[in-house]
Simulated assay, not measured.
Amino acid sequence: MRQPTTRAIELVEALLAAGCDMRAAGDGYYIGEPADRASAQNVRNILRDFGSRRHLLGEIASYLRSIGRDIQEPEKE
């Protein structure tokens, strides 16, 4: 697992502050967009201004896990 860079951490913190529900999922992550229109537009602006984040995929997922924001796999019986 890659150590998160400051850039990855800043993006996650900005999106969480904007009201996103972000979770690490496998080797990636998902972003749950806020329901209210103003917050959702703010999130789109953050993502647009940030630019490409594909190269930070692992770092973002790693940081989300480190702060307890991951999807747990269901236990197999």
Rank of each mutant, 00 (worst) to 15 (best):
P4C: 01
P4L: 02
A8K: 01
I9P: 03
E10C: 02
E10H: 03
L11F: 00
V12D: 00
E13S: 09
L16Q: 08
L16M: 14
C20L: 03
C20R: 10
D21A: 09
M22V: 05
R23E: 06
R23F: 04
G28T: 05
Y29W: 09
Y30H: 08
G32V: 09
G32A: 05
E33Y: 14
P34V: 08
P34M: 04
A35R: 11
R37C: 04
R37L: 10
R37F: 09
A38T: 07
S39P: 06
S39A: 11
Q41M: 15
Q41L: 15
R44C: 07
N45S: 11
N45F: 04
I46R: 06
I46A: 05
R48E: 14
D49R: 13
G51M: 05
G51E: 01
G51R: 07
S52F: 04
S52V: 07
S52N: 09
R53G: 03
H55A: 06
H55I: 00
L56K: 04
L57W: 01
L57S: 03
G58L: 12
G58D: 03
E59A: 04
I60T: 00
A61D: 05
S62K: 06
Y63C: 07
L64G: 03
R65P: 02
S66M: 11
G68P: 05
D70H: 11
D70S: 14
D70W: 15
D70N: 08
Q72L: 15
Q72P: 14
Q72S: 08
Q72V: 15
E73R: 14
E73C: 10
E75Y: 13
E75M: 11
E75D: 15
E75H: 13
K76Y: 13
K76T: 09
E77H: 13
E77L: 15
